[in-house]
Design a protein around this nucleic acid. Structure first.
Lengths: 216, 216, 216, 216
DNA sequence: TATGAATGAGTCTTCATTCAT
DNA sequence: TATGAATGAAGACTCATTCAT
């Protein structure tokens, strides 16, 4: 693996290496399919270290799940739409989200794994604020600006809109293997980019204020 | 259990019982988490029977995956939108899809499982026509009718539209556990029904032909 | 090992072989020191058989503990003192108990192990009647006969007397290794036989009715 | 914990703390069940300290075993029967021994552990005089006095008598958990006190010189 | 003297799979 | 066709012990 040179006897660094390896492993194989052996190997540590720092497989899984959210949310903080017109801001947000899911495929895997397990781990998670999306606020302010300038309808809930955007981006990324075979769709970066554009278009039309039919 | 009376020495029936049990087990626990023991128990047969009829766990999984598609596609054949106006037909289709995913949760689980495994099983599947959605054709004819009557834009690809509908319905159903916790959304039948309505609305707006700007 | 030829595919026999091996192993090494591997090896079965038939190590231990009691109690049923004079019966009982502990050394080991563990297993045991000593009744009837014929005092509790006999026999057998070294006592069959004689003598003197003080 | 204030860098004190903790741990869990981790924790030192001062687990166990003898023997030196009449002295000795075993339960545990291990550690022990019981001498002198005044028979070996006393006290204390369950005996301080009295009585009767048949 | 970091070698337990009937 | 009995291979987790500072 291409890990940074292993600094010996650095507890914090070791923990990080384990966590990264765990995230990779759990997202690649799910909870049941993940192997502590492989995580230890990938992290360049012995198995007991994992138990020493994380307790057991379940706890390590929880830590990895949280980490996957934290990393995704950190990524989401990079986008800046303040300077864009509302319509363009929304389109950018959709593009960004698609690109985000594409470039961090472990995230969709972790979500699927966790949901297949019934959400037990996420339910026990604390400090939820850390894993909530900053995009909700971003969307809220874009919508406000759009309503103010008359281009968007009022009454749209930011969280619901975020879920809509996530839905449109998540499904084709997460289910690409079955889609490819069953519908013979050539799922690649280009196709996903085009889908993001169409999704942006669809959402804009959905948000658009009714054209003012009046005489003025 | 309340299974149909077990006819002794009926090979076909035994195979079916195994297949049903396997579908339930794989969708509930994923490939790695599924247990041959439990499948045998639920099917009311001994483990060697499973190996006798299906070869090994991998083959049984493939059979269950195919079965999940077959059952879903059969369900999809129930809907009849020929007598509806195009707009209403699309809205009905979205409602139907949401309800379909909600009432057959093993389907989303199987898709997630298969995609997490990289689609190896689906790729080796034959008789693909059996597992392709009849809704593609349905959508195609609705779109045609809509274009003909002037209410829909031309140029929409039925497969792409199907994927859009599936995206909007799949995500909130499949990820309900994490959504509930992370966004504090009260995901229940009502909420999902409302989402289906909004999704219908969004898609309609997306499909709508541009309002004829009048004489100009 | 000198086990009977292994009959293939005989569940009951396999269980017995496991149980015997477990009794040997647990008594030789205690609960913590016992190894499932060795038990499987000694029983001539694979490890999964043990888990199949007994659940886990703890359950196997419980089964072995119960078995040790059952075997000891069965042995105790062999003695027949009905035809002996009360005094001789008591002496015989003491001799017998000593010999019993000497020839079944796994019993003292199991008792020590269980007591060191705080008696958790024995407390959860059911069908206690099976593990209670038939000697209590035997002693009761000897004492009655002794009192009736005037040779024993009345008011002796059979259970208490049994515990006294057990105490005198158990300690030198169970603690032979430390006694040998610390007190330089040459503990062997002879020495233990002599101790049993003296113990018998002591108990008789203890039970003896006070010599009738004469003329009063 | 309420340990004496830990003086930094006091080798002797550190060793003592380790030894005390080891005695507690080994007696509570046996050799196989004892954990170096817990000993280090209870002693308030790091694990390497233990290896530094004691070598390995086996050596630490030996030290703890010796320590248990040393402490017990020190306790035994507290009793003073010189001023008592021989009979009363014997009774007192039995009471004392019972109370001793009851209040230092780690001693019976260590003996059981060591004997279950076949006495390997005790056999390699040197300076045996330190771990031999001072009560042998005490008993010797009581017996002499009793014989001299005519109340005791001659010919009783002090070591054998000590073993008898120990037997009667050890068994009910060491095996209390199984006795409680199997014989439904309510083993508590009171019951043990009464047993000590009876044991004293029994031994006295055993030692008593035959009543001088008088003039006849 | 003292310790936080680290690990090799197990130990219990599980599971897909096969054998003998 | 059908199954109770059996197992090889592996997985999670532990523990005495050592290393580097």
């Amino acid at each position: 693996m291409n890990l940074p040179p292993k600094p010996a006897r650095d507890a914090a660094a070791t923990q990080r290496r384990i966590l990264e390896a765990a995230l990779t492993e759990f997202s690649a194989h799910g909870h049941g399919g993940a192997r502590i052996d492989r995580i230890a190997g990938a992290a360049g540590v012995s198995k007991p270290m994992i138990y020493n720092y994380f307790g057991d497989k379940e706890e390590l899984y929880k830590a990895a799940l949280r980490e996957s959210y934290v990393q995704i949310r950190q990524g989401e903080r990079q986008i800046d739409t303040d300077h864009m017109a509302p319509e363009e801001a929304i389109r950018e947000l959709v593009r960004f989200t698609m690109e985000h899911f594409v470039s961090k495929p472990w995230f969709t895997s972790m979500l699927n794994t966790e949901n297949m397990r019934g959400g037990v781990a996420v339910r026990e998670m604390d400090h939820l604020s850390e894993i909530q999306s900053p995009l909700i606020e971003t969307i809220g302010s874009i919508l406000d600006r759009g309503v103010a300038e008359g281009s968007f309808r009022p009454g749209i809930d930011p969280t619901e809109l975020y879920i809509t955007i996530a839905s449109l981006c998540f499904f084709p990324v997460s289910n690409k293997h079955t889609l490819r075979v069953v519908f013979k769709v050539p799922i690649d970066e280009d196709w996903l980019t085009r889908r993001a554009e169409e999704a942006g278009e669809m959402i804009i039309r959905y948000l658009r204020a009714a054209p003012n039919g009046g005489g003025s």
